[in-house]
Simulated assay, not measured.
Amino acid sequence: MKKLHLPGLLVALVCAVPSVQASCHAALKERLPQSGTVIFGEMHGTNEIPAFFSACVREFVERGEPVKVFLEFDASDTEHTGQYLRGEIDEAALLSSPRWRRLDGRTSQAMLELHRALKGVQVAGFVPLYGAADINAGMGESFLRQRLETGYNLVLVGGVHAQLAAGKGDIYASVPFGQYIQARSKNVLSLHARYTGGKAWACAPYCDANPLDGNEPTGATLARRIGFGGKDRRFSGYFSVGAISASPPALQD
Protein backbone atom coordinates (compact mmCIF):
# COMPACT_ATOMS: atom_id res chain seq x y z
CA MET A 1 0.00 0.00 0.00
CA LYS A 2 1.40 3.37 -0.98
CA LYS A 3 1.81 6.15 1.53
CA LEU A 4 2.24 9.82 0.88
CA HIS A 5 4.46 11.99 3.03
CA LEU A 6 3.35 15.60 3.26
CA PRO A 7 6.37 17.89 3.49
CA GLY A 8 6.83 20.81 5.87
CA LEU A 9 4.38 23.52 4.89
CA LEU A 10 1.69 21.10 3.78
CA VAL A 11 1.84 19.20 7.06
CA ALA A 12 1.45 22.42 9.03
CA LEU A 13 -1.52 23.53 6.93
CA VAL A 14 -3.33 20.21 7.16
CA CYS A 15 -2.73 19.93 10.90
CA ALA A 16 -3.95 23.49 11.43
CA VAL A 17 -7.38 22.64 10.02
CA PRO A 18 -9.91 21.21 12.49
CA SER A 19 -10.65 17.53 11.75
CA VAL A 20 -14.04 17.02 13.39
CA GLN A 21 -15.29 15.48 10.16
CA ALA A 22 -12.72 12.75 10.30
CA SER A 23 -12.51 11.56 6.73
CA CYS A 24 -12.80 13.06 3.28
CA HIS A 25 -12.60 9.47 2.05
CA ALA A 26 -15.59 8.40 4.15
CA ALA A 27 -17.71 11.37 3.07
CA LEU A 28 -17.05 10.74 -0.63
CA LYS A 29 -17.30 6.94 -0.44
CA GLU A 30 -20.79 7.32 1.01
CA ARG A 31 -21.82 9.01 -2.24
CA LEU A 32 -19.59 6.98 -4.59
CA PRO A 33 -19.20 3.54 -3.02
CA GLN A 34 -17.36 1.84 -5.89
CA SER A 35 -15.85 4.42 -8.23
CA GLY A 36 -16.38 7.81 -9.79
CA THR A 37 -15.09 11.32 -10.34
CA VAL A 38 -14.88 14.06 -7.72
CA ILE A 39 -14.17 17.60 -8.94
CA PHE A 40 -12.81 20.05 -6.38
CA GLY A 41 -13.56 23.56 -7.64
CA GLU A 42 -10.91 25.88 -6.27
CA MET A 43 -9.96 29.50 -5.89
CA HIS A 44 -6.47 29.57 -7.41
CA GLY A 45 -3.60 30.95 -5.36
CA THR A 46 -4.26 29.78 -1.80
CA ASN A 47 -2.27 27.56 0.53
CA GLU A 48 -5.27 25.87 2.10
CA ILE A 49 -7.11 24.45 -0.92
CA PRO A 50 -4.19 22.43 -2.36
CA ALA A 51 -3.45 21.22 1.19
CA PHE A 52 -7.04 20.04 1.64
CA PHE A 53 -6.98 18.29 -1.73
CA SER A 54 -3.63 16.66 -0.95
CA ALA A 55 -4.89 15.29 2.35
CA CYS A 56 -7.97 13.89 0.62
CA VAL A 57 -5.86 12.15 -2.04
CA ARG A 58 -3.67 10.73 0.73
CA GLU A 59 -6.69 9.19 2.44
CA PHE A 60 -7.75 7.42 -0.75
CA VAL A 61 -4.24 6.14 -1.45
CA GLU A 62 -3.63 4.93 2.10
CA ARG A 63 -6.88 2.96 1.97
CA GLY A 64 -5.74 1.17 -1.15
CA GLU A 65 -8.19 2.82 -3.54
CA PRO A 66 -7.27 3.03 -7.25
CA VAL A 67 -6.73 6.78 -7.70
CA LYS A 68 -5.76 9.10 -10.54
CA VAL A 69 -5.30 12.82 -9.93
CA PHE A 70 -6.07 15.50 -12.52
CA LEU A 71 -4.57 18.98 -12.16
CA GLU A 72 -5.19 22.09 -14.23
CA PHE A 73 -2.11 22.13 -16.42
CA ASP A 74 -1.32 21.37 -20.05
CA ALA A 75 -2.00 17.78 -21.05
CA SER A 76 1.21 17.92 -23.09
CA ASP A 77 3.19 18.24 -19.82
CA THR A 78 1.77 15.07 -18.24
CA GLU A 79 4.73 12.84 -19.12
CA HIS A 80 7.28 15.40 -17.95
CA THR A 81 5.42 15.72 -14.64
CA GLY A 82 5.16 11.95 -14.43
CA GLN A 83 8.92 11.66 -14.68
CA TYR A 84 9.24 13.81 -11.57
CA LEU A 85 6.55 11.89 -9.69
CA ARG A 86 8.29 8.60 -10.52
CA GLY A 87 11.61 9.99 -9.27
CA GLU A 88 13.23 10.03 -12.71
CA ILE A 89 13.98 13.76 -12.70
CA ASP A 90 14.56 16.24 -9.88
CA GLU A 91 12.57 19.28 -8.85
CA ALA A 92 14.71 21.69 -10.85
CA ALA A 93 13.91 19.70 -13.97
CA LEU A 94 10.20 19.69 -13.12
CA LEU A 95 10.24 23.48 -12.79
CA SER A 96 12.02 23.87 -16.12
CA SER A 97 8.73 23.21 -17.89
CA PRO A 98 7.25 26.39 -19.45
CA ARG A 99 4.01 25.92 -17.51
CA TRP A 100 5.71 27.01 -14.29
CA ARG A 101 6.49 30.41 -15.89
CA ARG A 102 2.82 31.38 -15.75
CA LEU A 103 2.79 33.27 -12.51
CA ASP A 104 -0.75 32.61 -11.35
CA GLY A 105 -2.28 30.40 -8.69
CA ARG A 106 -1.95 27.21 -10.75
CA THR A 107 1.84 27.41 -10.38
CA SER A 108 2.01 28.53 -6.76
CA GLN A 109 4.32 27.35 -4.01
CA ALA A 110 1.35 25.43 -2.59
CA MET A 111 0.89 23.67 -5.92
CA LEU A 112 4.57 22.73 -5.90
CA GLU A 113 4.06 21.33 -2.40
CA LEU A 114 1.13 19.36 -3.80
CA HIS A 115 3.38 17.89 -6.50
CA ARG A 116 5.89 16.86 -3.82
CA ALA A 117 3.14 15.14 -1.84
CA LEU A 118 1.83 13.28 -4.89
CA LYS A 119 5.02 11.38 -5.65
CA GLY A 120 4.12 7.84 -6.62
CA VAL A 121 0.55 8.78 -7.61
CA GLN A 122 -0.78 8.89 -11.16
CA VAL A 123 -1.19 12.57 -12.09
CA ALA A 124 -2.38 14.00 -15.40
CA GLY A 125 -2.82 17.44 -16.87
CA PHE A 126 -5.97 17.89 -18.94
CA VAL A 127 -5.86 21.42 -20.37
CA PRO A 128 -5.74 21.54 -24.20
CA LEU A 129 -3.10 23.45 -26.07
CA TYR A 130 -3.37 27.23 -25.99
CA GLY A 131 -5.85 28.57 -28.54
CA ALA A 132 -8.43 25.76 -28.30
CA ALA A 133 -11.79 26.94 -29.62
CA ASP A 134 -13.66 25.54 -26.60
CA ILE A 135 -11.39 25.09 -23.61
CA ASN A 136 -14.03 23.36 -21.48
CA ALA A 137 -14.82 20.80 -24.18
CA GLY A 138 -11.10 20.33 -24.76
CA MET A 139 -10.54 19.77 -21.05
CA GLY A 140 -13.47 17.37 -20.99
CA GLU A 141 -12.26 15.27 -23.91
CA SER A 142 -8.72 15.17 -22.51
CA PHE A 143 -10.05 14.04 -19.15
CA LEU A 144 -12.31 11.37 -20.65
CA ARG A 145 -9.40 9.89 -22.61
CA GLN A 146 -7.22 9.63 -19.51
CA ARG A 147 -9.60 8.84 -16.65
CA LEU A 148 -9.78 5.60 -14.71
CA GLU A 149 -12.82 3.59 -15.72
CA THR A 150 -12.69 1.71 -12.41
CA GLY A 151 -11.44 3.67 -9.44
CA TYR A 152 -11.49 7.30 -8.37
CA ASN A 153 -10.60 10.32 -10.45
CA LEU A 154 -9.87 13.28 -8.17
CA VAL A 155 -9.79 16.59 -10.03
CA LEU A 156 -8.57 20.01 -8.85
CA VAL A 157 -9.66 22.81 -11.17
CA GLY A 158 -10.86 26.40 -11.09
CA GLY A 159 -14.35 26.83 -9.66
CA VAL A 160 -16.01 28.07 -12.87
CA HIS A 161 -14.74 25.03 -14.80
CA ALA A 162 -15.95 22.74 -12.00
CA GLN A 163 -19.61 23.68 -12.33
CA LEU A 164 -22.21 21.08 -13.26
CA ALA A 165 -24.59 23.74 -14.55
CA ALA A 166 -24.69 27.46 -15.15
CA GLY A 167 -25.87 29.56 -12.23
CA LYS A 168 -28.89 31.83 -12.35
CA GLY A 169 -28.14 34.63 -14.78
CA ASP A 170 -24.77 33.16 -15.84
CA ILE A 171 -24.00 33.21 -19.55
CA TYR A 172 -21.01 31.18 -20.77
CA ALA A 173 -19.63 30.65 -24.26
CA SER A 174 -19.58 26.91 -23.56
CA VAL A 175 -20.81 24.51 -20.91
CA PRO A 176 -18.41 24.15 -17.96
CA PHE A 177 -15.98 21.23 -17.80
CA GLY A 178 -17.95 19.62 -14.98
CA GLN A 179 -21.21 19.72 -16.91
CA TYR A 180 -19.44 18.43 -20.02
CA ILE A 181 -18.09 15.29 -18.35
CA GLN A 182 -21.21 14.67 -16.27
CA ALA A 183 -23.18 14.38 -19.52
CA ARG A 184 -20.72 11.76 -20.80
CA SER A 185 -19.89 9.67 -17.75
CA LYS A 186 -21.46 8.27 -14.60
CA ASN A 187 -20.86 9.04 -10.94
CA VAL A 188 -19.63 12.64 -11.09
CA LEU A 189 -19.63 14.91 -8.04
CA SER A 190 -18.48 18.51 -7.97
CA LEU A 191 -17.62 20.41 -4.78
CA HIS A 192 -16.95 24.12 -4.53
CA ALA A 193 -14.49 25.63 -2.08
CA ARG A 194 -15.82 27.56 0.90
CA TYR A 195 -13.63 29.82 3.00
CA THR A 196 -14.10 32.47 5.65
CA GLY A 197 -11.98 35.13 3.95
CA GLY A 198 -8.32 36.04 3.67
CA LYS A 199 -6.06 36.44 0.66
CA ALA A 200 -5.31 34.61 -2.59
CA TRP A 201 -2.54 35.16 -5.13
CA ALA A 202 -4.32 36.36 -8.26
CA CYS A 203 -3.63 38.40 -11.37
CA ALA A 204 -6.49 40.90 -11.46
CA PRO A 205 -4.99 42.75 -13.25
CA TYR A 206 -1.69 42.83 -11.32
CA CYS A 207 -0.34 39.65 -9.79
CA ASP A 208 -0.29 39.97 -6.02
CA ALA A 209 -1.83 38.70 -2.79
CA ASN A 210 -5.36 40.06 -3.06
CA PRO A 211 -7.90 40.19 -0.20
CA LEU A 212 -11.05 38.11 -0.59
CA ASP A 213 -14.29 38.12 1.33
CA GLY A 214 -15.48 34.80 2.68
CA ASN A 215 -18.18 32.76 0.98
CA GLU A 216 -19.24 30.61 3.93
CA PRO A 217 -22.97 31.04 4.59
CA THR A 218 -23.92 32.69 7.86
CA GLY A 219 -24.24 30.10 10.58
CA ALA A 220 -22.34 27.39 8.69
CA THR A 221 -20.78 24.63 10.79
CA LEU A 222 -17.11 25.10 9.95
CA ALA A 223 -16.10 21.77 11.46
CA ARG A 224 -18.08 20.01 8.74
CA ARG A 225 -15.41 19.82 6.09
CA ILE A 226 -17.49 18.28 3.26
CA GLY A 227 -21.24 18.66 2.79
CA PHE A 228 -23.82 17.91 0.13
CA GLY A 229 -27.10 19.34 -1.04
CA GLY A 230 -28.28 22.94 -0.83
CA LYS A 231 -29.82 25.29 -3.34
CA ASP A 232 -26.77 25.82 -5.55
CA ARG A 233 -27.43 23.56 -8.52
CA ARG A 234 -23.99 24.32 -9.96
CA PHE A 235 -22.38 21.90 -7.49
CA SER A 236 -23.16 18.65 -5.68
CA GLY A 237 -21.81 20.10 -2.45
CA TYR A 238 -18.86 21.89 -0.92
CA PHE A 239 -15.60 21.54 0.98
CA SER A 240 -14.59 24.05 3.65
CA VAL A 241 -11.03 25.16 4.36
CA GLY A 242 -11.53 28.00 6.86
CA ALA A 243 -9.44 31.17 6.48
CA ILE A 244 -7.28 31.33 3.36
CA SER A 245 -3.79 32.72 2.82
CA ALA A 246 -2.07 33.66 -0.42
CA SER A 247 0.48 31.33 -2.03
CA PRO A 248 2.82 33.19 -4.44
CA PRO A 249 4.34 31.56 -7.54
CA ALA A 250 6.83 28.76 -7.07
CA LEU A 251 9.11 30.64 -9.47
CA GLN A 252 9.52 34.38 -9.12
CA ASP A 253 11.64 36.80 -11.13
Rank of each mutant, 00 (worst) to 15 (best):
V67F: 06
P66E: 03
S19A: 15
H44M: 01
D74W: 13
S19D: 14
L9P: 08
A12I: 10
E59K: 01
A22Q: 14
V20P: 08
F73G: 12
A75F: 05
Q83Y: 07
A27F: 02
S19F: 05
V14R: 11
M43I: 10
V38L: 02
G82S: 08
A22Y: 08
I39L: 03
E72A: 04
A75M: 12
F73A: 06
V61M: 07
C24G: 13
S23N: 12
P50W: 02
E59V: 01
H80N: 05
A55F: 11
V14Y: 07
L13K: 15
V69I: 12
N47G: 09
Q83V: 02
E42V: 03
D77M: 11
I49H: 10
F73I: 06
L28P: 09
R58L: 03
I49M: 13
Q34A: 15
Q34F: 13
L32D: 05
C56H: 07
V17G: 09
F70V: 11
P50F: 02
C56S: 05
S35P: 03
F53P: 00
T78G: 05
L71W: 05
E42H: 00
L32E: 13
D74Q: 10
D77V: 10
S23E: 12
V11F: 09
G36M: 02
V67M: 03
T81L: 14
F52N: 04
G82D: 06
P33N: 12
R31K: 15
F70S: 13
T37R: 01
F40M: 05
T81M: 14
A22I: 07
F53C: 04
E59F: 00
L32S: 07
A22M: 10
A27S: 14
G45I: 03
P66N: 04
F52S: 00
G45E: 02
H25M: 10
E72I: 11
G36L: 02
M43F: 01
S35W: 07
